[in-house]
Write a protein that binds this DNA or RNA. Sequence first.
DNA 1: GCCGAAGGTGAGCGCTCGCTTAGCGCGGAC
DNA 2: GTCCGCGCTAAGCGAGCGCTCACCTTCGGC
Lengths: 207, 207
Amino acid sequence: MTTAEETAGEAQPWGEVTPDAARRLLVAAVEAFAERGYHATTTRDIAGRAGMSPAALYIHYKTKEELLHRISRIGHEKALEILRVAARREGSATERLADAVSSFVRWHAGGRTTARVVQYELDSLGPDARAEILALRRRVDAEVRGIVEDGVASGEFDVADVQGTTLAVLSLCIDVARWFNVDGPRTPEEVGELYAGLVLRMVGAGR
Amino acid sequence: MTTAEETAGEAQPWGEVTPDAARRLLVAAVEAFAERGYHATTTRDIAGRAGMSPAALYIHYKTKEELLHRISRIGHEKALEILRVAARREGSATERLADAVSSFVRWHAGGRTTARVVQYELDSLGPDARAEILALRRRVDAEVRGIVEDGVASGEFDVADVQGTTLAVLSLCIDVARWFNVDGPRTPEEVGELYAGLVLRMVGAGR
DNA sequence: GCCGAAGGTGAGCGCTCGCTTAGCGCGGAC
DNA sequence: GTCCGCGCTAAGCGAGCGCTCACCTTCGGC
């Protein structure tokens, strides 16, 4: 039901997917997977949302799972890039962590449709695709852990369990995709600001 | 594959479900839903895990969805009870919040099988069942918010956005069910302790 | 003007799904 | 001993699934 407006919240989404018909199918799949879940979505539903016949899907994708795989990889790459930009900018560890959390949360809230699929449908992938995505997740974890370690080294942060705290920070951000409601009282920007402040407290910044 | 050991981590699970055959089916459904998700689980799989024929399921439950509904209600009631006990014990808001978080997290980590179904398969319920469960969730939220409000009133906590912070605390705890791994490096007790400390920092306790 | 490739459709295959139905075995009442 | 009723099974129904196949259109190159 929401085709243009909701996905427009994401910055130029899926621009790298060509040709046009393949992108329309992929966008339709993202919406359907986010609404109903991978297993509850039919190939007929995806094709119908894209305005095509059921058979058209198989011209551009070998299986329904390949669609999920493509969505998941592109989404994880986008998430990783967001964190890489925040981690590599100039500034203190405090500033970089706040930036990382607020932009990561904005992505999960604003692009909730995509983020839901990316974060919660991993188990529906086969072993090989799943392993590839898990490797991307470890790089996501490493980016955040790097900032936390920098802050501990510089004395800005006070963290006893770096790995556990990093896990908690990422977990907090990712779960936004589960509960965030576009019609709710908060904008993605507001949640990003709130969460950045909470995370700085979690790492003991500014004590 | 894991029948006795994993569910044994939960305290006397599903003791209220009778008769015995109905309980065995329900436990089998919890395991299957947690492993594969509701839509990817077949009624034949559930019956098979319980050592019965596919038709046996329909003697005790009207539909597959009724199984999920029962699991979800019992699970939410258990979660709510855990928080009620922590919220109503004697002690400062700081002590009660730490208790609530650590016991809530222990439940999500130790009973990850159940918690996964309870927290992540809500969308697979029909509108009526879903509305009933959402009412239980609001009560869960109210319990935690009550503790946070008490802490703010007594001056123990420093929280600008009580509702938003409560949401974040619950979100952090719930997401444990997604990432916790029984074979991982941490016990449920360790995660509970770690998270209680992080949450106290989030609410600005002991500054 | 003709041709081949690319991109699409309508029909439908084989299969498995949730669920139903007819009937079997067996323990307790009398 | 007989019979009832409960708990269960074997078999299978109609429907909808992922996916395929034979065929049709459109269009750039020559």
